[in-house]
């Protein structure tokens, strides 16, 4: 009896393994690309399998996804509140980093994998370092963090902001996708067979439809680099903060 069960179980397992292997073997050519012509072997197989072999096809919904969404939403909103309430500038920058990391995780839930990684690299990496450097250069505690204004002005501003919050949230909450069934499922692969939001998919879209903005951005970054150097450079040589001491200390010069 026991041997019979083991035989049936192993047969089912073997059948499952063979089935999975056959599926993978069928799906594999869709991902392989001939170096010269990337569409040469992809195109015929896309119609057969429709699934990229590297695609995970995990749908981000359910209770686990809800738990993660609330956790990362709390992280991003908490970090944002940290930014606008702290007097210590380093604490504010660290709150900003936490907020950006939470936002990157939220991007991941929106199937924007590439944008999520770019967010972490650019914001939580580069821009955070830039802010920390400037905070260290300034190195000065704030006198009065919140702008002083009358009680009436604060009340009017608060009411205006709350009204803006209410109207914006009401408007956005009612937004519905054009095709709710398609928007609820995991996103499809693109026409080239790439995963939604992957580097290849975003790159294909960027260099097909957004080539002019891409080139304009490269010029903008060049101008920003030159402008940042030109602005941050001291105007006069005798100004302080140039790094070289202009006047010798009396202890060293005295005799």
């Amino acid at each position: 009896m026991m041997r019979f069960l083991i035989m049936i179980t192993s047969a089912v397992l073997a059948w499952g393994a063979v089935d999975a292997f056959v599926q993978v073997a069928h799906a594999q050519p869709a991902g392989q690309q001939v170096p010269g012509n990337p569409r040469a072997r992809v195109q015929p197989n896309v119609n057969v399998t429709k699934v990229h072999p590297h695609s995970d096809r995990v749908e981000s919904k359910g209770k686990g996804m809800a738990l993660l969404f609330w956790a990362f939403a709390a992280a991003s909103i908490g970090g944002a509140l940290f930014v606008i309430t702290r007097r210590n500038l380093i604490a504010a920058v660290m709150g900003m980093v936490g907020s950006f990391l939470g936002i990157a995780a939220i991007y991941m839930m929106l199937y924007a994998h590439f944008l999520s990684v770019v967010q972490m690299l650019v914001y939580a990496g580069a821009i955070m370092v830039l802010f920390v450097f400037v905070v260290m250069i300034l190195n000065r505690p704030e006198d009065e963090p919140v702008a002083p204004s009358g009680r009436a002005g604060q009340a009017i501003a608060g009411i205006a902001i709350l009204y803006l919050v209410g109207r914006l949230i009401m408007l956005l909450w009612k937004t519905q996708p054009a095709n709710p069934a398609a928007a609820a499922a995991a996103p499809p692969v693109t026409a080239e067979g790439h995963d939604w939001g992957s580097v290849k998919a975003v790159g294909t879209d960027l260099f097909n439809g957004g080539l002019f903005p891409f080139e304009a951005i490269s010029i903008l970054l060049l101008v920003a680099v030159v402008g940042a150097i030109a602005i941050a450079r001291p105007l006069h040589e005798d100004q302080d903060n140039t790094g070289e001491p202009s006047t010798p200390t009396p202890a060293g010069g005295g005799k």
Partner: peptide, 29 residues
């Protein structure tokens, strides 16, 4: 972009990130 199944939003977000980096560098300068 996810709701409408259109990848242009990703492209635009990438460009917004680049503009934000340029803005941060010039603003901090």
């Amino acid at each position: 972009s996810r709701m409408w199944g259109d990848l242009s939003g990703h492209t635009f977000a990438l460009i917004v990130i680049a503009v934000a980096a340029a803005e941060a560098s010039v603003g901090l300068a």
